[in-house]
């Protein structure tokens, strides 16, 4: 083992990054922590409130409902996007000019700003003038996403699937194309059927990229804000009010800083915990 003498000068060069991280992450986070444990009646006067806000939030039916909706939304879009992305990746061509065509087409939805996606789908789904809304009603379906919770949910999920399945497909495709031909040849010689090839070669080889895909999609969908806000604004009623939308309502609509701060921290911890658990479970067999 070679030990190098400490170079104190090195710390000087790291300082700008430390400051940057402190101002854009640590200080705001600490402010939130600060709010979460105090009560204020204005005039910048704060009183210690202990874990009171946390107890309130954890007991609040409104929070339970928003968390339930959030879990339902994330669960549904994961259940659709992951298998669908894998299927798309499996059917994409492996070589030739069509590879580029497919890749560009797949990447397009990912390049559109989130608020634009929300606006597009909002107009698309309007029952009187939107292409989707109008067509569905013309076909005889009773569809109105501004009044029916079910319609709103279906539109919300369709929008997220349209926007993000490409990401899963591209990641899965990258995983698939990195499998050497020898694996397929060996499987052919071993007499493996297509399902066995998928189950024992393709799926295991895609495991790492799919872990990343699921993590990204979990985090993004769990914190999604812009698109549902623009599409439905959380309505009709509270039917599509996801956690982030509810949080903004409490913090900026009602200006209840304490509960909002406590809720932010709980929200953050849930995201962190689920991500950590999932990643640990998925990588427990990987040897370094």
């Amino acid at each position: 083992m070679v030990t190098k003498p400490d170079n104190l000068g090195a710390w000087f060069f790291v300082l700008p990054v430390v400051l940057l991280v402190a101002f854009n992450a640590l200080v705001p986070l600490m402010t939130v922590v600060n709010y979460a444990f105090q009560e204020t009646f204005g005039n910048n006067l704060f009183f210690w409130h202990g874990v009171g806000w946390f107890e309130d939030i954890l007991r609040s039916e409104r929070f339970h409902a928003a968390l339930g909706r959030q879990l339902l939304f994330t669960g549904i879009i994961l259940a659709i996007q992951i298998p669908l992305g894998v299927i798309i990746a499996l059917t994409m061509p492996k070589k030739g000019v069509w590879v580029s065509v497919c890749l560009v087409l797949m990447a397009l939805p990912l390049l559109i700003p989130w608020n634009v996606v929300g606006s597009m789908w909002n107009i698309f789904a309007l029952p009187d003038i939107g292409m989707l809304g109008y067509t569905l009603n013309w076909l005889g379906f009773n569809y109105n996403m501004t009044q029916q919770p079910l319609s709103a949910w279906m539109t919300l999920i369709a929008m997220d699937v349209w926007h993000w399945t490409s990401l899963v497909a591209l990641l899965a495709y990258a995983g698939l194309t990195s499998i050497p031909d020898a694996y397929y040849q060996a499987a052919k010689i071993d007499g493996a059927r297509p399902w066995a090839i998928f189950r024992h070669i393709q799926l295991p080889k895609m495991k790492r990229v799919l872990t990343i895909a699921i993590l990204l999609r979990f985090m993004d969908s769990f914190m999604v804000y812009t698109e549902p806000l623009i599409l439905t604004g959380g309505g009709p009623g509270n039917s599509t009010t996801l956690l982030s939308i509810d949080l903004v309502k409490i913090a900026l609509g009602q200006f209840d800083l304490g509960p909002a701060a406590a809720m932010s921290l709980i929200y953050f911890l849930i995201t962190l915990l689920v991500s950590w658990l999932f990643y640990t479970v998925m990588t427990r067999h990987d040897n370094a």
């Binding site: 020898a182 060996a186 010689i189 071993d190 007499g191 024992h200 080889k205």
Partner: peptide
């Protein structure tokens, strides 16, 4: 039967299941 340059094994299976795979298929 063919043995390739790089060892081709079924990662998720045990040694036993790897050996049994061509027979089970």
């Amino acid at each position: 039967a063919q043995v390739f340059q790089f060892p081709v094994i079924y990662d998720t299976m045990s040694v036993y299941d790897n050996l049994a795979f061509p027979l089970r298929n």
